[in-house]
Structures are given as C-alpha cells and as structure tokens.
Design a protein around this nucleic acid. Structure first.
Length: 639
RNA sequence: GGGCCCGUAGCAGAGUGGAUAAUGCGUCGGCCUCCGAAGCCGGAGAUCAUGGGUUCAAAUCCCAUCGGGCCCGCCA
C-alpha cells in the first residue's frame, strides 16, 4: 500500500518537473540508513538516459515537486545521491497497518489471486519399498508448503502421491514377504518392508557373487577374484546391519532364498502376474505396498503432512490408460520405429511448435529422443507417466510436480509428448518443481543395501532434543505440555532448515545446525511468538492507543516489517519460493526482539504509549503466526 | 562429446541490475533487582571461483575458463 502511495506522488511530481516523460517501473527498497527514510526509488537513474541529465539533478527536480500533503501516509520526500527517499508519517501509518492486521487477523497478508485455479501438487511419490529418508523429506516439506501457499492465495489445491508399484523393487519386497509366510509388520511398517526388500537384494547378490567367485577360482583369474571379493564385502557389511535391525527377517530370508533355484525369475513372474492383475499377485503386492504407504502416512502425518489421494501406477496399467496413450502417439508424426523399438522424437515436436523458445530452452540443443516401447513389445514407465498426467489434467488445470532435479530431462520429454498429442496446454501448465539432494555428512545412503537415515529417526531425535530444551527452560510445565511444545519445536526446526535453503542448492544436513534452537531457526521465531503471547496474556487492560508516539527506531522498523507481509506472501507464492517467507519471519522476529529488549510494553511511560505498543505486539503475534502457518510450522503460545 | 544446476567471510547461507553484500554458527567484548537470556547490544572477519564484455550502475546480464553435482538407459 505504501508503494502505491509513493508511486502516485512520484508520477505527479515527475509529470510536473518533466512533462511528457513516462515514469519507468522500478523496485522500491528501504534505504541503507533508516535516517534517510523508509522507502526509496532509484527511478532517476533510468530517467537519466532519456532526459540527458544527471540522476542527481533529476532527483532534485522531482523531489521539489513532490507534495507530501497529497498523501495521508507520506511525511516528506527528499533526494539523496540520485535516489528519491520517502519518509513515512509513522503515526498514521501505524494506525493503518496495525488496524488492518488486527482486523484481518487470521487472514492478514493472504492476498487472494484474481485468477483462482484448480492446482495439483504432486509430491513425495517415493517408491513403496523403503522408508522415507531425509531426501524424501525435503520433497514432502517443499510440496506441502507450496500447496499451503497456493491454498492461502485462493486456489483450489489437490495434493497427490503417485505410487510406483509396478517396478521390480516392489516385486522383490513382496516376494520376500511371501517367502517369510506373509507375516504382519513389526515396528515401523515402512522400515520393516524396506528391510525385507534390502535383505532379498543382499542375499541374492551374495549368492550370485559367491558363485562367480567360485567360477573365477576354478579358472584361476586372480584379479577378478579380488574385485568380486571387494564387492562381496559391501554386501556382507550391509547384511550385518540388516540383521541387527530385524534378525528374523534377515535370517529367514538368508535361509530360504538360496534354496530357490532361480529367485530372480520368480520375482519377474510375480511382477508380470501383478501387471496382469492376477488376483493372488494383486492381493499380495497391494498388501505389502499398503504396509509401506501406511508407514509413509504415519511418519509424514507426525509432522502434519498429508495427501488427498494416493494414485497407483498399476491402476493406470489395468485401465489400459497407457495403451491409449501409445495409440495416440503412434498416430502422430513423432513416433518411429528403430531396431524394433518405438521411439518418440522429442526434438522434432519442440522444433515444429517452437517450444524451445516458448519454454525458454537452449534453441541449439537437440533434445534426446525417448524410447516408448522396447523391442520385445513391453512398455516403459514414461508411457504410464504420460497417461497419469493426462488423467491429472482431467482434475486440474495446473500441475506442479515436486521431483528431484535429476529428472529434468524426463520431465521435459513428458511435456513434449503431451504437446505432441495435441495437448499443448498441459505441457504449458505442467511445472517441474526441481530440488537438489540432501546429503548427510559421513553417510552414504542406499535403499538397495537398506542403509538410510529415516525421516522418523530424524523427527524422533528432534523431538527428544526439543524436549530436553523445554525441560531445562520451562520445568514447571506438565509433561504433556512439554511434549506438545517439543513436537512443535522439533518439527519446526526440521522444516525450517529444509525450507530456508534455495531448492536448487544441495543441502548438507547437519544435526547441530538443524536442531540449533538459536537465531535464524524455527525455534527462534516460535520463541518470539511465545514472547508476544506472554505480554498479551499479562496485559490486564488495553488503554486507548496513541499511535503517534511510536516514534522510536525499533518501533518504526517493526511496523515497516509488519506492513511488508502481504507483498512478501504474494512474491513467495508467485515465485513458489518458501524461502521468502522463512527469511521474512526471521527478519520480523529480529525486529520484534530488538523492540522487546529496548522498550517496555506494560510499563510504558504513558497509557497511550502502552496501548499503542500493545497493538504493536498483537499485530506482531498475528503476523508471525500467519507466516509460520504457511510454512506448516506451529506457533506455540509458550515454550 | 552434448546439456542443465551450483560456486558469496573459517563454516552455513540470503541477495538475480541500484546506495555501505543480509543473517546465523564460530570468534572477541558487554547486558538478567525491570513484560521469558531459545534473548539483546557492540567488535573483528568477503579480491561475491577466475578472466574478459554490456551498462550511468554487475554478486546479479553475456562470453570464456576452472572447480563440484546431475542428466543424456530398450531402469523406475
């Protein structure tokens, strides 16, 4: 709102000083020194060229013509070094801002879009044969936050999870489970399924390697033996870890699997049977996948993340949706046979429709082709993915896929294929929200070997550390209260670390940093919220506010920060950058804590000032809470 | 070989055309008889990977080079 005021004043003044010169759009920003004012425009630098004058002269001439009296909020304007700086009438501005925040309360800042859409956010979509780990967690947390941001902007949002249940990996887990006599899960279902899967893999690979070593020994190939031995050691190490986690699982499989003549062939048979929807196979696979998905729902549910729908890849196959896509593609000029396989010509469609320019791709780069059907006639995952997206676009008109950046090319080819089938609008409205991986120092994660740091481990550890911190700082609270706070703080800490880093940068997950409860963390922001709540709780009366007295630097800065929330929110949603909100919330907390340390609220010098400061605290509480909620972080009232 | 992404203080990490490059950890020095010290106040610490270019103005845009990651499967 302040920007519009300044822009209006500027336009009028510029017209007077330099008639007929259009005012270019520029960004406003706070000047480096608060003494210079609250908002500044660099517009004169741009005018310098057309007006053939120095920016300083232009700024001077425009500033002289600005009439602050025409504005309710601006007190004065001045030219400094080519910039035009505005000083805000803080009393009036505070009245407006604090009044708006308190009146809008839970809705403050959530500027509604003029163009509400139905949007899908697909996120997590982890293979249902291993537990969620910290890398998946970045996906889930980003996806959940994007969905929340879009919802708050007024879109109708659907959150879906694609279950990749057609792969060999799921068949392996199911096969192991059958071999064990189809037991019920023990402990964490997803970890248990993951252990079965990894055990099958490790036992099979060990058997294979032992055979190859024997053969190499017979032929006396010394060099090969050493190589195989080394590989074998990796699996043996993994076996020890798996055995430690679920002794019966590993031991049973280690005993039974080697007795099977060709376990791999049996796994393929099971997979094919499932693909054909044969009742027994379907019952078994769905059971195991179900265990795993329940585990996902539990561990994500613990940190407040959920889905509207789990979409099974197998359902698409059974509905023959992929076959329909195949027929459609075959009928286009972009599918051709090569060595018995059916190929999609990604580059040709991009050229024919000018999609490289349209989608901002390198025009000189040839986009690699894509295999749709193997020479043995079986289809590939991509085809099912196309069918899935056509289905999704039957529900929504915009789709955001939160998927690792390594899938960039595959996602592009998917969009091109949609365009090739006459569904350009789907290609245009499909966004691959890419993110980089999360690394754990000193840990090499591997699903195949059952080696991972699971999300629930991390959540548990965070809760434990948070509990200890609460216990030290607020020993008088009941155990239940402490636990509730520990959950909010622990979960918040994890989410904040993953949301505050740009999604295109790799994150090195550092326990110390993620669970540091000091400045620039969720707990710091939560603490600021709790402090604000505490003051409000202790205020016995609310004197009539005298906003004109909020003149101290820290008060002004806090008010300015509060006023910035709506535009921060809008930027964050439009650019899909949750980091904007984390940075904002941290900055707002800084301003509040500085204010808190410098100025007493309840014991302010006059009742009018106390009243004004109380509203300021109230508005801060509301804004911090709103910001945290868009991030999926809970705002505790005490901690 | 081709393509995409990343490179900012000891470390972590904002900022993608505007003033003196945020912030945190660590480090040095202060502040609890005053609304919660998970806090506040103040120091020191940066050739923004390197070299060119565009611009009144470059960490930001363009080109080249170096370093790191990922992709270019008849895997999913």
């Amino acid at each position: 709102m302040l920007r519009e005021e300044c822009q209006g004043l500027l336009e009028k003044a510029a017209e007077e000083a330099h008639p007929g010169t259009p005012l270019p759009k520029t960004k406003y920003s706070p000047p480096p020194d608060p003494e210079m004012g609250e908002l500044s425009s660099p517009v004169c630098f741009q005018l310098a060229r057309t007006l053939r004058q120095s920016p300083q002269e232009i700024a001077q001439s425009i500033a002289e013509k600005i009439k602050p009296s025409a504005s309710e909020l601006i007190e004065s304007a001045g030219a400094v070094g080519g910039y035009i700086n505005f000083k805000v009438d803080i009393g009036r501005f505070a009245t407006l801002v604090l009044g708006t925040v308190i009146e809008k309360d839970g809705e403050y800042g959530f500027v509604k879009t003029k163009d509400p859409q139905r949007v899908m956010v697909e996120h997590t979509s982890a293979n249902p044969n291993a537990p969620l780990h910290i890398g998946n967690a970045r996906n889930s947390i980003l996806g959940d936050c994007l969905a929340e941001l879009l919802r708050r902007q007024g879109h109708e949002v659907l959150v879906h999870f694609l279950v990749n249940d057609m792969g060999r990996q799921v068949a392996m887990a199911t096969y192991g489970w059958k071999l064990m006599g189809k037991p019920e899960p023990e402990g964490r279902a997803e970890l248990w399924v993951g252990t079965i899967y990894a055990s099958v893999n490790v036992v099979n690979e060990t058997t294979r390697l032992n055979g190859e070593i024997r053969e190499a020994e017979e032929r006396g190939k010394v060099y090969e033996i050493a190589e195989l031995q080394e590989e074998l050691e990796e699996y043996q190490k993994a076996a020890v870890e798996l055995r430690k986690r679920y002794p019966e699982v590993y031991d049973t499989l280690a005993e039974k699997l080697p007795q099977i003549e060709d376990a791999n062939a049996e796994i393929v048979i099971l997979n094919t049977a499932y693909e054909n929807n044969e009742p027994e196979a379907t019952g078994d696979v769905r059971k195991v996948v179900g265990y795993c998905l329940e585990g996902f729902e539990t561990s994500l549910g613990e940190i407040g993340i959920g889905f509207d729908s789990f979409d099974f890849e197998s359902d698409l196959v059974w509905k023959k949706a992929a076959d329909d896509v195949l027929e459609e593609l075959k009928a286009t000029p972009y599918a051709f046979m090569d060595e018995g396989a059916l190929i999609f010509d990604s580059d040709k469609i991009a050229q024919d429709l000018g999609l490289k320019e349209r989608w901002g791709l390198n025009p000189d780069h040839e986009i690699p082709r894509l295999v749709l059907v193997r020479s043995d006639g079986t289809t590939l995952y991509t085809l099912r993915d196309m069918a899935y997206h056509i289905w999704k676009f039957g529900l929504v008109n915009r789709d955001i896929n939160v998927i690792g950046s390594e899938q960039r090319l595959a996602q592009l080819q998917l969009r091109l294929a949609l365009a090739a089938m006459g569904r350009l609008w789907m290609g245009d409205n499909l966004l691959h929200y890419a993110y980089e991986l999360v690394y754990l120092p000193g840990v090499k994660m591997s699903g195949r070997l059952g080696r991972y740091v699971t999300l629930s481990e991390i959540v548990e550890k965070a809760e434990k550390l948070a509990y200890e911190a609460v216990d030290v700082r607020s020993p008088h609270l009941s155990k239940e209260e402490k636990e509730g706070i520990a959950r909010m703080v622990g979960h918040g800490a994890i989410k904040y670390t993953l949301l505050s880093v740009d999604s295109m940068k790799t994150v090195t997950f550092d326990w110390e940093k993620a669970l540091n409860f000091e400045t620039n963390s969720a707990p710091y922001i939560q603490y600021s919220h709790a402090r604000a709540c505490n003051i409000l709780k202790k205020a016995e009366e609310r004197p009539e506010p005298d906003y004109g007295r909020l003149t101290a630097r820290r008060e002004k800065e806090l008010i300015m920060a509060l006023a910035r929330f709506p535009e921060t929110f809008t930027d964050a949603v439009n650019e899909l950058k949750p980091g904007e909100i984390t940075a904002y919330a941290n900055n707002l907390s800084d301003k509040f804590n500085s204010f808190y340390a410098a100025h007493p609220v309840l014991k302010a010098e006059t009742p009018g000032l106390a009243g004004a400061r109380l509203r300021l605290v109230e508005a801060t509480r509301i804004t911090i809470r709103n910001a945290l909620q868009t991030l999926g972080i809970a705002p505790p009232e005490r901690m």
